[in-house]
Structure formats: C-alpha cells, structure tokens
Amino acid sequence: MAHAWKCSGLRWSVEGPELVWDGGRRSVLARGGRVAFGVAEGGVRTCAGARGHACPVGAVVAARSTGARCEECARLDRAHSVAADTFADDPRPYHVYLAWFGPGMLKVGITAVERGPARLLEQGAVCFSWLGAGPLMAARRTEELLRAALRVPDRIPYAEKRAVRAALPETAAARAREVAEVHARAVALAGWPESLERRPLDVVDHVGAFGLAGVPAAVGEVAGLAAGGVVGGELVAAAGPDLHLATGAGVVVLDTRLMTGWELVPAPGGGLTVPVREFRAAAGVQDGLF
C-alpha cells in the first residue's frame, strides 16, 4: 500500500507554486508538468486544526469546504489573524496595497512588509501596486478610508477571480489601467494617517508568474474530493490556490484548499474521477469601478 501524505496547502515562493505537506516536505509545481494524486480508499476528511496545532477532536469536515476546519478551530484561527484586528500592538510595519483580478475587480488590503508580494500571489492578484507603508493600525485606517471614500472592497470571491482568467486584457498596460486610476484617487484623498508613508505607483504584473497568457478557458472545476477518487492533469497555469489542469475533457480548475485534511497517495495513471461541476464563466463583467 502506498504511503499516504496530508497536504497543508499551496504556497508561493521565489521558485513558484509549491504544495506543502505535513512534516514540511514541499513539491515544486512546474507548468507543463503532471499533477496526479489519489485519495486514500475508505478515508475521511479531517479538520486541519488551527495555528499549527492539530484539531483536538479530529473532527470530520465537509468535502466541499475550502476552509477544512471544524467550527471551533475556524474560530480560533480567525481570532488570531490580523484580519480580526486582535493584534493592535503588532510592531511590524504593514503595506497597504491595491490588487486587480480582472476588469472591475479591484480590492484594497494590507500585508506585513516582511512578506513582500507573497500575499498577492496567494490571492491570485493578476497585478498590484503598493499604496503605502506604516504601523498596523495606520494601515487599517487607510484601508477603511479607501473602502468608504472610493467604494473599493477588501474581498473578492475566488469564483469571480477564476471566471475572468481566460479573458484578461492582453497587455500589461491595459491590465494596470484600473490600478493606476484608483491609486491616483487614493493618494489624493484627505484623511490619511500621518504615520503611513505613501508609496508611488509601481504596478507589478503576475500574468507571467501564473502562466495566464493564452491559458485555455476552463470547462469545469473540482467540486470536492472523495475517498478513492483520482485527480490528474498537466499543469497549464497556477494562480492563488488554484491549479489549472489540462485533462482529457479540457481544462479543469482545482482549488488546492480542497486537498487539505485528506490522506493522499500517488496516482501515476492520473485521470479525473472526483466530482466536477461546470465552470461558470464571467457574465457581464463591468468595464471599470467608476
């Protein structure tokens, strides 16, 4: 019987996307390479735990949950995140950024300066620019200022990001246009915290890093894994947590967050025998924010 591994999720490094496994092992994913694994027969999906600790009760979680945590572990994980505003005294400096995912899809967010662009890669940002840098609470106030004054959201659902990847503007200049427009509006606003240093526009494009240039439109997306199921295909693109896999039936998107909590085994033969739902392409995407 093949040894089973548990996946901790997809991470982005200078080498590109990597699958991380319990125990610290990493598998670098190369475009054009094959991704193939099976779910252990008779297995169940268990809670991924919180903050690096195993779930105390080993709770079973739903196959379609991208969080892979039981209610209690999800609460603990959220309570100790920057997003929950529980670390007001965090001494680290933070960046405020504008991230663009497709026409009309631009959000504001914050990330620790020491993390560099990792957070933007993890979110699948097609391009982005820093807006400013400073203490955590100043960064938070700036984020709120943009949400209120410019109606820029701080969240965009992954389903919406996926829906436009095969129809992005062809040039980096066209992709950067909305970021430049909102950056100019943002830095002109009154009410910025004095401790937050404004940053000039410098749009970074991730189309090359993600492999999205000319990526075929997806025909389906994995709805969830199942015991005994197999996933296999050629990696044609990777953005955020998503792997775009070329299969015999066309390109199928796998959200790697669906892999956590399962015991996975090698599947050299590949194939695709897990539940797949029809891909929902973008419909009526707006031309801009304003």
Rank of each mutant, 00 (worst) to 15 (best):
L98A: 07
L98N: 04
A99V: 05
W100V: 03
F101K: 01
P103C: 01
G104D: 14
G104V: 12
M105H: 10
M105T: 05
V108R: 03
G109C: 03
I110K: 02
I110L: 15
T111S: 14
A112P: 12
V113Y: 03
V113Q: 10
E114H: 08
E114Q: 12
R115P: 10
R115A: 15
R115K: 13
R115S: 15
P117G: 09
R119P: 06
R119D: 13
L120I: 08
L120G: 04
L121V: 09
E122F: 05
V126C: 14
C127A: 15
C127M: 07
C127W: 04
S129M: 11
S129D: 14
L131N: 08
L131Y: 05
L131F: 06
A133Y: 07
G134P: 09
P135H: 08
P135K: 06
P135N: 07
P135C: 07
L136A: 12
L136M: 10
L136P: 02
M137T: 13
A138T: 10
R140Q: 13
R140N: 10
R140L: 14
R141I: 10
R141W: 07
T142N: 01
T142V: 13
E143R: 01
E143Y: 05
E144Q: 15
L145W: 04
L145D: 01
L145C: 06
L146G: 05
R147I: 06
L150Y: 03
L150W: 04
R151C: 00
V152Q: 06
V152R: 04
V152S: 08
D154V: 05
D154W: 04
R155Y: 07
R155G: 00
R155W: 03
R155K: 05
I156M: 13
I156L: 15
Y158E: 13
Y158D: 13
A159C: 05
E160D: 15
K161W: 04
A163W: 08
A163Q: 06
A163H: 05
R165K: 12
A166Q: 05
A166M: 00
A166E: 06
A166W: 04
L168V: 07
P169D: 10
E170C: 00
T171K: 04
A172R: 04
A172G: 00
A173K: 09
A174Q: 14
A174F: 05
A176L: 11
R177V: 02
E178N: 00
V179K: 00
V182H: 03
H183L: 09
H183E: 12
H183D: 12
R185V: 00
V187H: 02
V187P: 01
A188R: 14
A188G: 12
A188M: 10
L189S: 04
L189V: 07
G191V: 11
G191Y: 06
W192C: 06
P193N: 12
P193S: 13
S195P: 10
L196P: 07
E197C: 11
E197H: 11
R198G: 15
R199P: 03
R199S: 09
P200C: 10
D202H: 14
D202M: 12
V203G: 06
V204T: 12
H206R: 10
V207P: 04
A209S: 12
F210R: 05
F210I: 08
